[in-house]
Design a protein around this nucleic acid. Structure first.
Lengths: 359, 359
DNA sequence: GTCAAAATTTGAACCGATCCAACGAAAGTG
DNA sequence: CACTTTCGTTGGATCGGTTCAAATTTTGAC
């Protein structure tokens, strides 16, 4: 009773079929990797043996070790994995990253974890040739982890504070935010409110300029700086502009508007730090019979496709998301070490969510 | 300026730091894998050596080979990679797959390719413990490829024809389609049109029952069968029901409706094989001032979240997408070989896109 | 029939870790 | 002080392939 294939495991290796076919493992390997250099008769014999023994082809695990290259890039975020499929910005970015990967034949590994411990492990053990890091929240920890791995990586975000020798691709958030604020002031608006992206680790609520300056995520900081710099230029007292921190979801945005419009002096213009925030705000305003842009104007940030078909279509600062994705993939794949940081142009796209101040 | 990676190579291996620290490679390995069993003094010495030599921790490539398990599951489709981020059904499915993976700490690798040659290679060389196969189009080839890899895999789709011993999770498309057709007939509708998912390899246009029977993707076949079986039961002459094949995008759906509504006898009820089709149809109808459900009723299929907030909200057959994702991941991860195929319940959710026949 | 060139095949080395049986030293026991 | 445990460390085996210089067989020319 020879214990043959125990149906549980697949202990059939290349060496096994080589022996079965009566050739060396070197030749067996060639049959799969470079069939043209092995004599037809032998090739068929090996293939037959493989077939007979239920061999599924060379195991990539083995090849990988020898080759060194995984041929896949990791995309990392500190959000839960589903972030990639839920968030509009992430989706557009991922779509362009995928296209770039498709074009070069590289695969994509999604790396994430909410729990910090787990995240570290996931990054340390990810089988990838490099990382693209989504610096949404807790970005610096991610960057830290990615760097420790000593693999090429690019951060999708330009941190204006530390030009820390970390390779990064992003936009000038300060300038972009300035564009938004300037657009609204030029339309005559003087009473503003700001809906921010997350600053602290969790939670939402009214916040202050000082708090936002401490935000983990640099884009949040820079966008507020951009808004306020421009508003100040128009002699608007930014210390009186209400700032509400959201977590980029419907609930917190609605709570923010509840809060803002409960005040005595309601704004005629809202600066939203993401299109997602702006779109949720549009819903809230519609439900409260506040017309846009009649009563209130709103400008988003990002330029996701949903903004073009919302009601009304959203005026926003569009980032060249597709281009960013493409460059990020390129930076990883063709990593020659030279790449450092790249700032891409943003653009104000005026649609119908902004109009003259009612006052 | 900072000396990040030496950019070219990273020839520093565990063995190198072991030598540098004057310990055996076994001990060096333990320092990283089971620090608690090595004496503190030694541990620190090895860590210091690692730090000094710029060692980024044990390379997963090596560990992988020894461990055998990749701890990642592959999600495969014959569509371009961006399908995962564009298609509403895929997105919901992926979100639930991600959640299940997050919960178990497994990673996700996206595997795809439009080009067949490339697809085969990508599947053969994917570093995963198993595959979840999206059987959208060209499903059988994918299943074939996945099977050859001799790894556990689950197809997300129940093919009513070949219960081919392939593990699969899906819904009873025939019954689901029946539910949709019955709902509309009970509302008095007698003039129908069907918008199908892709059948042939590419292209769209008017088609016939016979053509659809040859569809590559079983869901397309089964849904049509379900529609027609139920309609026949109500003595509707299904041979006169126009069938238009779409490719599940706006362009083909609109072309389909152009075609269908150009006919003499326009339908009062549309059976759409996906919510995506139904949603695009809703847009077309609105633009043509055809009221829904006043003039025309429409029922979708899938139950994607967008359907709940469309105008009007979509009556549809909802699949338990989240549950399917969860089960699929479970099937791969806890693969005990026992699993075969599982049919999940579908449900008719009546919203506002369906109403009594105008006639 | 002989010999060099061309075509194949072989087998050892290597990729970078983990695992484990065996071993040496320190600690505990009688 | 001899004798077991316990603890920490060692080094060889292994995971499953690819690669390449050297060996062997074929083929071709004279």
């Amino acid at each position: 009773m020879a214990p043959l294939t125990s149906a549980k495991t697949r202990p059939v290796r290349l060496a096994d079929i080589a022996k079965a076919a009566g050739v060396s493992h070197g030749t067996a390997s060639n049959v799969f990797a470079r069939p043209e250099i092995v004599r037809e008769e032998v090739r068929e014999r090996v293939k037959a043996a493989a077939e007979a023994m239920g061999y599924g082809g060379p195991d990539p695990k083995g090849r990988l070790l020898r080759a060194g290259k995984v041929n896949a890039i990791g995309v990392a975020t500190a959000e839960p994995l589903s972030y990639f499929f839920d968030d509009p910005f992430a989706r557009v970015m991922m779509a362009s990253i995928s296209q770039a990967c498709d074009a070069t034949g590289a695969g994509i590994s999604l790396v994430s974890a909410v729990n910090g411990e787990q995240l570290a492990w996931n990054i340390q053990s990810a089988l990838v040739d490099g990382f693209i890091v989504f610096c949404v929240d807790g970005g610096s920890k991610l960057v830290q982890l990615a760097r420790e791995r000593k693999l090429p990586f690019v951060a999708l975000d330009l941190d204006s504070d530390d030009d820390d020798a970390v390779a990064a691709i992003g936009v000038d958030n300060i300038a972009g935010a300035g564009l938004a604020a300037r657009h609204l002031t030029e339309l005559g608006h003087r009473r503003f409110a700001v809906l921010t992206l997350p600053c602290a680790d969790a939670g939402f609520g009214p916040t202050t300029r000082e708090q936002v300056e401490k935000a983990l995520y640099s884009a949040t900081r820079d966008r507020l700086r951009g808004y306020f710099a421009e508003l100040s230029r128009f002699d608007i007292d930014v210390s009186r502009v209400p700032i509400y921190e959201t977590v980029n979801d419907e609930k917190s945005v609605w709570a923010g508007l509840d809060h803002i419009f409960a005040g005595a002096e309601t704004p005629t213009a809202i600066l939203a730090m993401s299109d997602r925030i702006a779109l949720h705000a549009l819903d809230w305003l519609r439900q409260h019979d506040i017309t846009v842009p009649g009563d209130v104007s709103i400008v988003g940030f990002d330029g996701v496709p949903e903004g073009a078909v919302s009601k009304p279509p959203l005026t926003t600062i569009v980032q060249p998301i597709a281009e960013m994705g493409r460059l990020a993939v390129k930076a990883i794949l063709e990593n020659d070490g030279s790449f450092s940081r790249q700032s891409l142009p943003i653009e104000l796209v005026i649609r119908s969510s902004s109009g003259p101040s009612p006052a």
